[in-house]
Design a protein around this nucleic acid. Sequence first.
DNA 1: GGTAAAAATCGCAGCGCTACGATAGCTAGC
DNA 2: GCTAGCTATCGTAGCGCTGCGATTTTTACC
Lengths: 339, 339
Amino acid sequence: MARRRRSSQRVTMGEVAQLADVSPSTVSLYMRRPDEVSPRRAEKIQSAIDRLGYLPNTMAGGLASSRSNVIGVIVPTITNSFFSATLETLERHLRSAGYQLLIGNTEFDESREEELIRSVMSWNPAGLVLTGFLHSRKSLSLLANSDTPIVEMWDYGRPGLDMVVGFSHHASGRLVAEHMLGRGYRRTAFISTNFQRDVRAGDRYLGFRETIEAAGGRVVLRQLSGRSDTAETGRLLGELIAENPGIEAICCSNDMVALGVMFECQRQGWPIPDRLAVAGFGNQDFTASTVPPMTSVEPPRQEIGRHVARLLMARLRDGTTPQEGNLDLGVELVVREST
Amino acid sequence: MARRRRSSQRVTMGEVAQLADVSPSTVSLYMRRPDEVSPRRAEKIQSAIDRLGYLPNTMAGGLASSRSNVIGVIVPTITNSFFSATLETLERHLRSAGYQLLIGNTEFDESREEELIRSVMSWNPAGLVLTGFLHSRKSLSLLANSDTPIVEMWDYGRPGLDMVVGFSHHASGRLVAEHMLGRGYRRTAFISTNFQRDVRAGDRYLGFRETIEAAGGRVVLRQLSGRSDTAETGRLLGELIAENPGIEAICCSNDMVALGVMFECQRQGWPIPDRLAVAGFGNQDFTASTVPPMTSVEPPRQEIGRHVARLLMARLRDGTTPQEGNLDLGVELVVREST
DNA sequence: GGTAAAAATCGCAGCGCTACGATAGCTAGC
DNA sequence: GCTAGCTATCGTAGCGCTGCGATTTTTACC
């Protein structure tokens, strides 16, 4: 059995050069700008590469050029279809342009964000994508000393560090509220994942509440202890209605919470929307198929990914920021039978 | 306006050394094994680091040491709670040991896997985590020339490249089948996401079918065109029952599909489980709260992450593989009222 | 107080590549 | 046939760190 061979990456550019009978510089040039080497050598080099199974050493390249093809992306959690859909789109667009995503999870913890930013910045990244506007003092000072392009995504309406791509959560809440008022509901509740974990749910709540109250309605708030959990949601709804039997409509901070509410209504025999109207946020796939189909807000998950990629690439290509470096992609209310 | 400052990472180890009045080597040693430098200098170095806001250059370090703290992880999609929960756990465990995850998405495309493996290997990673056993010839040859530790996860029962952490999908299907047979169901159907996208769903189907047929039952198969989609699921179920009115139980390739089935039953007024029994796979949070609560298989999402991290770290620490380098974590059937 | 051993520090030679100026090879034009 | 003006290739000097052997300082003990 082979005892620990040299290293996992053995063939170097020099060996390729030797086999192809050119200088290492020519191989390097071929790798970076193939059309600048003559067809004859290009072919020889390529066949040497194939024969040796050469893989360039990204670290050496990055060090020498003091640029990297890394783009750091920091999200609260990848276990959430909101961010994961954005990540997937972002990844697709950036990878096709030769970039590599370095993904970090804060798990909704500000100090972890700081640590992640340090860790990502140590790669000398070409760009950095953060979620939202909330960053610790230390994170900010880390970023202040760098000229790495930064995009803050998934929120809008506050001054950003550099570029911003998102939408207003406050406006999303308002949109649902206006719809409910239009349907004649005044006595409402907002059931939410915990605001500590998810500040943006808090903004949606504020938008909802301000609009309902401005029209003379009332909003009762209930927060889950942590992430969306259908069992806890059911319990919370039960208590809520026991204490406030007059409530006519529930706005939920996301579709999973709304699903929990709908199941509980079904269990209790409360007809939707006649006894209780329900709206979600996220417009996930299943919302169209619940019984009755669920009214929900569609956030621009994929569009965010697309535009973040676009802005970043514009900046990296020519150092400029398109005039709309601050982008509100808006949301759309999808009205179905649950309200 | 400052015209493009030097680079986003300016302060070097040498500058820290100068300010702390020690040699660069000592700073390097301090960064790597702090307890080997005297407390007096350690303190001076640390304060210089703080004052200058020094961030080590990961690429330079990686090049010099020809090791990296990168671990590549390649999954079909992060937009799926199965893999994202594993990723989150894996990330937490590996990061706390100083590793950095490089995540790649194949989007269920074999050629993309190949490209991702190339891209990850060019980072000279400390380890590589793949999903499943299915890899293209080229991918295999890329991996054969390297001595990077590899873990294949989320499946079990075939010979792996190196280490394996997962469970048998075939056995999962069998488990559901045995349960259904125990309940007296013989005329069944399997509704699934497309096997092209998800080979493992195909294995669950085979396990289910073999067991049902061995007991003299029948299984009708329906595949969705792509990923789980509740609307399409409803349509498929309608057709299925129209053509096979005798069907008593449906096994679904995952919980989202099962949810679609349950909604359609509700819409059609078919009582669950009396007219139709339904089981899912994944035991997602909402399964406990559907009406009626859904029977589902619980895969070891987080455990996979934990054990992958453990095996990888054992190998990286002392070059050994724990004797159980091939790990079947098993699954558990959670029986609820839907069957 | 002197010395050997141990601990702390330092200096230097790369890691594998890129950038850039220098050189060689070619093409056209007269 | 010679040269200007290209284009294609090459040589060299780092990028910022680590690893290791050499050197200095400290510790321990007679």
